[in-house]
């Protein structure tokens, strides 16, 4: 019997908004799929494309980059830099056929439930895409 494919998703969060949103989802006892693994940086603008690609290369089926909503960045404009970098990275990923496996989303510190809902949907999407690493 085939067991359900459990994707592995690496989620990058910033320290101020999106990490707090993940915390809030937990504090509110909102359950969501266990498939996500959080990596915290101070600001999403710290992320290099290399770290995203590394996650995919090393075994992740998808990557989610998160940060504060536009205009809410703790460091004035970091999330705009992330957005620009993400759009460039996305172009390259699309050529590799990986465009659907990397997403960018903004979460405020108060959006725990929204984070949980986003993960529920994203895990389903990645499940439909199937494993990135030949089932291994």
């Amino acid at each position: 019997m085939d067991s359900q494919f459990e994707p592995r998703i690496v989620v990058f969060t910033c320290n101020w908004c999106s990490y707090a949103a993940v915390d809030l989802a937990g504090t509110s006892r909102t359950t969501y799929p266990h498939n996500v693994r959080i990596v915290r940086v101070m600001c999403s603008s710290r992320l290099t494309p290399e770290l995203v690609l590394k996650a995919l290369a090393e075994g992740a089926d998808a990557v989610l980059i998160t940060g504060c909503h536009p205009g809410d960045c703790h460091y004035i404009s970091g999330n705009y830099k992330t957005l620009r970098r993400y759009l460039l990275l996305k172009k390259m990923l699309e050529q590799l056929g990986l465009g659907d496996r990397v997403r960018l989303a903004w979460f405020s510190a108060a959006e725990g439930e929204r984070f949980a809902q986003f993960i529920r949907e994203f895990v389903e999407e990645v499940r439909k895409l199937g494993p990135l690493h030949g089932g291994g």
Binding site: V39, V41, R46, L51, K54, A55, A57, E58, G59
Partner: peptide, 20 residues
């Protein structure tokens, strides 16, 4: 590099979490 969040400090974390 950013202290405490250097490439050399983040890469192993990403690898560990991606591999499980």
């Amino acid at each position: 590099q950013q202290r405490h969040f250097k490439d050399s400090q983040l890469r192993p974390v990403v690898t560990a979490l991606a591999r499980g």
